[in-house]
């Protein structure tokens, strides 16, 4: 989903002289497996898909909380939390702004007739519309993103930097120190 962001992050990390050393270890990976299962269920039972997706988001949030010792995961948490608010308050689907979505080269019909298991159409009655997918992002891959997605992308970027053994610490940046985090 974030293929372009991840590729870009790897490119930056390579330019910074990073190399993959070891894969970071995550706690409670089974939580992610459960969420994949829930999303599969959502595909098969589109009518109550919203419930599955809502619970899936809860599990992912729990996974992030268990792994919060790393800063990139905490940034993920911010983004995921904001997106979850939008999804939970809108029946388990992320509303997407039709005005922006029509600029995309994809078929929008699935979303309109409700068969898309992840998205719904943004309307007047949508709750917290400013947290839903409303911003058209033209490149690298054109897509419509939410404000939460900004944090998810930033988190992905930081995660890749850490993966490539060149971590960046936002806390240290904030304290006016060198951004290079302790390895």
């Amino acid at each position: 989903m974030l293929l372009d962001v991840i590729c870009f992050s790897f490119l930056v990390a390579l330019i910074r002289g990073g190399r993959i050393k070891e894969f970071p270890k995550f706690q409670k990976i089974y939580l992610l497996v459960i969420t994949i299962g829930l999303q599969v269920c959502a595909v098969f039972f589109p009518l109550i898909g919203g419930i599955f997706i809502s619970i899936a988001y809860l599990f992912i949030l729990a996974f992030l909380v268990f792994n919060r010792e790393f800063e990139d995961i905490r940034i993920f948490m911010v983004g995921w939390f904001l997106n979850s608010l939008a999804i939970w308050t809108n029946g388990g689907k992320m509303p997407i702004d039709p005005v922006q979505a029509r600029k995309l080269p994809y078929n929008f019909e699935e979303v309109v007739n409700g068969t898309n298991f992840k998205h719904s159409v943004l309307t007047e009655s949508t709750n917290l519309p400013f947290l839903t997918d409303v911003i058209y992002m033209p490149s690298i891959i054109p897509r419509v993103i939410s404000i939460g997605d900004i944090f998810i992308m930033l988190g992905a970027f930081l995660l890749v930097q850490r993966l490539m053994n060149k971590p960046i610490s936002l806390i240290r940046l904030r304290e006016g120190k060198s951004y290079a985090a302790k390895k």
Partner: peptide, 27 residues
């Protein structure tokens, strides 16, 4: 006041600015 359509772009820009400014200390 965050809900009208014409405000979303502003909120987006200010989110970016906030992230930027959170990590731009002045000594």
């Amino acid at each position: 006041q965050w809900e009208p359509r014409e405000h979303w772009g502003v909120l987006f820009i200010y989110t970016l600015l906030t992230i930027f400014s959170c990590f731009t200390p002045v000594r």
